[in-house]
């Protein structure tokens, strides 16, 4: 099988079984959910807050759009509580673009997630960009037929989210800052941890794998499977602070499967050109000539100014349950 089943929970409520012409039809299996995430690979998923932005994203070559009420940069400035987007806005985007539509819900807010599933979004992002609704538990994502994506800043977080049912992982980074340093730190961390585990797996040292799984608070089974695969069992995207084609290329080079861009596009003054340029740089990340062509399409004077990640009032990456 091309798609790993590691950490999956076969008796989950999210699996719907029906019959067509005497044949069993299964919806919401780990394969179908993770398979959806695999279709996003090498693509760019763009944050949008209305139909106009969704249209621009689609025209620019976004592989999917992520609907939220306010862009992460604006969430920081508005303060208060950030919740899932208006049903009306999500519905209008569902009615107008043909690419997949994702939407964010609050961490642990299983009702917001159910609403998003009922409206018909293609993937739910249980996101630290919104105010967490539960400080102890994330959503048990196996209860849903719709796949989920979660953020992670290290391997333990990523594997815990996968064991809860996440079909896709993204780095947390520090959203809305226009600074990629945190996303880079998070993907490096995950990569280094996997490399270490792979070495231990190759040495057949189960005792050490058990010790590490306790240390990173994940199950031995999924840690071992990750060591065997030499990568996460699900698709892993970069997110948090990406603003330019060069940023996208940098994170692809570090081994990400694709890119999320949040405030970077619609907080810039040249969103359509920039969106196209980020798409090109993501596909041709390993070809400096083409990345240069993409970078030429944008003007640094039109990039979002950004925020210093060291002096933030709110560190989104640190929100939510620690386990």
């Amino acid at each position: 099988m091309t798609i790993s089943q590691a950490g999956s929970y076969p008796s989950s409520k999210g699996i719907k079984i029906s019959t067509v012409d005497t044949k069993e039809v299964l919806c919401g299996t780990a394969l179908i959910k993770r398979g959806f995430a695999h279709m996003q690979k090498h693509g760019v998923i763009m944050d949008v807050t209305n139909v106009e932005q969704a249209q621009i994203a689609e025209d620019a070559g976004a592989v999917a759009v992520m609907v939220l009420d306010k862009l992460p940069y604006d969430v920081r400035h508005a303060g208060g509580v950030a919740r899932t987007a208006s049903v009306k806005v999500i519905q209008s985007i569902l009615d107008s673009v043909s690419i997949p539509i994702m939407a964010k819900c609050r961490i642990g807010h299983s009702s917001e997630a159910s609403i998003l599933e009922e409206i018909g979004v293609d993937m739910v992002d249980e996101s630290e960009v919104l105010s967490p609704a539960d400080e102890n538990r994330h959503i048990w994502k196996w209860n849903y037929t719709t796949p989920f994506v979660n953020g992670a800043k290290n391997l333990g977080e990523a594997l815990r989210r996968i064991e809860e049912g996440a079909a896709m992982i993204r780095t947390k980074g520090e959203p809305g800052t226009g600074d990629v340093s945190q996303a880079v730190a998070h993907i490096r961390m995950v990569n280094n941890e996997i490399k270490k585990i792979k070495g231990i797996y190759d040495n057949n040292d189960d005792q050490e794998l058990i010790r590490i799984s306790r240390e990173i608070q994940s199950s031995f089974e999924i840690v071992k499977e990750t060591g065997k695969l030499g990568r996460l069992p699900v698709v892993n995207f970069a997110a948090g602070g990406i603003s330019t084609p060069a940023d996208a290329a940098l994170l692809m080079k570090l081994g990400c499967d694709g890119i999320f861009v949040g405030s970077g596009i619609f907080k810039a003054e040249d969103p359509l050109e920039r969106a196209k340029a980020v798409v090109i740089a993501t596909t041709y990340f390993d070809d400096p000539k083409t990345v240069l062509e993409a970078q030429k399409m944008i003007d640094e004077k039109k990039s979002m100014l950004g925020l210093d990640t060291k002096n933030l009032d709110l560190k989104m990456q640190e929100r939510g349950p620690t386990i």
Binding site: V20, K23, E24, V25, L26, C27, G28, T29, L31, I32, G35, F36, M39, P100, E117, G120, V121, D122, M123, T145, T146, P147
Partner: peptide, 26 residues
């Protein structure tokens, strides 16, 4: 339909057989 309705089921494909696992994603 959308992702919610994505599914897997056995298919009958001529020249291959009636036991092919079809994976349909949107």
């Amino acid at each position: 339909g959308r992702q919610y309705d994505s599914f897997e089921s056995k298919l009958n494909i001529s020249g291959i057989g009636n036991d092919y696992k079809g994976i349909f994603i949107r």
